[in-house]
Design a protein around this nucleic acid. Structure first.
Lengths: 156, 156
DNA sequence: ACCTGAAATGAGAATGATTGCCATTTTAAA
DNA sequence: TTTAAAATGGCAATCATTCTCATTTCAGGT
């Protein structure tokens, strides 16, 4: 685990980097330059990024390596793959690393995805309700996903 | 609108059929035999179905027609396209027709999707919280989507 | 620093869900 | 019925993603 973080809003880049190294090591993977650049690109994004957005952010990352390394990073629990409604998968740093459980505002017109957080009280209410529903259906709950679909400021 | 339904849990097939006809008519589309078979197939499913599942349900539907007609039906607001985390899009009848706002339990192992409903109180709490978050981000909210990810009874 | 085998890389080929095309069939309305 | 427009279905094309493999980089022992 990372050292106690006090009340800072975000883990520092350095701390995240250390965490990533640990997570990769746990699945016998190296934290190479390409993977570092990938993590950096995702850190800069305001929300989950598509492969193309990552490519645009960092010209030196070949597409095949982006795909392969995002798969490795996902396997290691470093990134999360997000599927919205358009044809492009998106990736963001795992909540484990950002320390922010959050959800997504998805623009149905341009596809952009923006993060938001829910009030803790609402989140707990939701969790309970979901646990109940899962139990009833014989599901073992692992995670949940809440998206708001709408139009972003630019697409109204 | 459909006639007042009293307290029945489901719209009858006939009523749904009428609604579909109206919705298609509104976008100048015909309610052909193939489209009727598609709607029937979706009505039988316990949750959203993939193209393959629909094909399996009704041998007489050619794949290209399934794709094309699902697109038409979605355009008309008859069906909703669901994207989970696997590689297959899924389709279900629009909530407008089933009269049940619901969410999905998604098995991360086999991909099966099962419907469930949330308590009205929780749903309202959620709506308010989402409206607030949307406003803050300059989004115009249109819909929301809540999925529980976990393991189904068979995949534990 | 130098080997050396294993892991990672990157360019391009292959895969596969989805979409587009078009000749034929069906439909609705005159 | 005739007829023009819409729908169909088989197949080709598209395109995000995955696979392949020859080359490069890495880690760890010397």
């Amino acid at each position: 685990m990372a050292p106690a973080a006090g009340n800072v809003a975000h883990m520092s880049e350095a701390v995240i980097d250390d965490e990533v190294a640990v997570l990769l090591d746990a699945v016998d993977q190296r934290y190479t330059t390409g993977r570092r650049r990938l993590v950096a690109a995702l850190q800069e994004g305001v929300g989950p990024l598509t492969i193309n957005e990552i490519s645009a952010t960092d010209e030196n990352l070949p597409q095949s390596s982006i795909y392969r390394n995002l798969a490795v990073l996902e396997e290691a629990g470093v990134v999360t793959r997000i599927v919205t409604n358009d044809d492009f998968a998106r990736y963001e740093l795992a909540e484990k690393l950002t320390a922010h459980h959050h959800h997504h505002l998805i623009c149905t017109a341009c596809g952009i995805v923006v993060d938001f957080e829910l009030d803790g009280r609402v989140e707990r209410t939701l969790d309970q309700a979901l646990a109940g529903a899962a139990k009833e259906a014989g599901f073992t709950p692992m995670d949940h996903r809440l998206d708001l679909l709408g139009l972003c400021r630019d697409c109204q």
